[in-house]
Nucleic acid binder design. Structure first.
Lengths: 160, 160
DNA sequence: TCAATAAGTATGAAAATTCATATAAATTCG
DNA sequence: CGAATTTATATGAATTTTCATACTTATTGA
């Protein structure tokens, strides 16, 4: 990728406003753009994006409690409660009160849920690999550590 | 940023699962984390986030049509129609049919809307500067061109 | 030119989300 | 200890959002 004068001119042309170079916008728009395809795939499974996020986290570690699952899945608590209930009705997860702390409700994958999440995680891996190869030469790979660092700085709580 | 054995160990420790190092998750979570503070500020103004996005774009360029405003503001069209109607009722914008193409509806800031968007854009600038300085040394500044490149690759349509 | 198709916006009903708050259990500390 | 506080989850009403599609105007091509 050469930066001929023509291209530089081009780039300057389109960056006049505030928004198009605003970090918060770039993050939101990049997230949207990168996710669009795969999220469409997720919806074809009959899952909404938040449900997919829950399944993916449970794939990594079962038995999380609602509050924590909500934080890491970027879902507000009362909403997640309702989503989990729906997922339970669909046979994807089960809920179990925590014996040690009876306020807590822990969420576990059913066999069905586990198999679905395994499938989707595998597809997500492939999709990510494709994405990174497309962005390669650009900044695909460098992006991940930078985002992880941002997260770590801004929200250290989110660590496992 | 040195990659001492200690730090590498640290990174490995917390990255066992799939999700916590998955590009789409990192993007969504980073966007959330970076936006949380400022979006809270926006809501105190009585605006929802999508409304702020609309105001910000109109700040850069007035008279956009609904469809385009929807794409760049990351809002689905029929939702934006409703949001614009509400914003009109609140006196922030006005709608005008396009004389050339009478299907189109163009959206303009009112004086009130313009002054509110100017205020918020200024605050957004300050907030972004603070954010970048916090992330400095990390990857704050390098992030923006990388995200812009990702966007350009994945969604060239979004160009102005 | 005119029928067919596409593009832009609006609309209504169904579903999801938010917000405030209830409920219940654990923890704190005077 | 036990009242006050905090933490975890659930609930209901009000609001938003989505989805399919209607409606209107523009464009295309036979």
């Amino acid at each position: 990728m050469q930066d001929s004068p023509a291209i530089e001119q081009d780039i300057e042309d389109r960056d006049e406003g505030f928004v198009s170079n605003y970090l918060l916008y770039l993050l939101a728009a990049a997230s949207e753009a990168a996710s669009a395809q795969f999220h469409a795939r997720v919806r074809k499974t009959g899952l909404r994006v938040p449900e997919w996020r829950v399944l993916a986290w449970l794939h990594d570690r079962d038995g999380e409690m609602i509050t924590r699952l909500a934080r890491i899945s970027l879902i507000e608590q009362s909403r997640l409660t309702k989503i989990i209930i729906q997922m339970e009705e669909r046979g994807l997860v089960t809920r179990q009160g925590d014996a040690q702390d009876r306020r807590r409700v822990r969420v576990w994958l059913t066999d069905t849920g586990r198999s679905l999440s395994a499938t989707l995680v595998e597809e997500a891996r492939l999709h990510e690999a494709r994405l990174l190869s497309i962005l390669e030469g650009g900044d695909g790979a460098r992006l991940k550590p930078a985002l992880a660092a941002l997260l770590e700085t801004l929200d250290p709580e989110s660590r496992e």
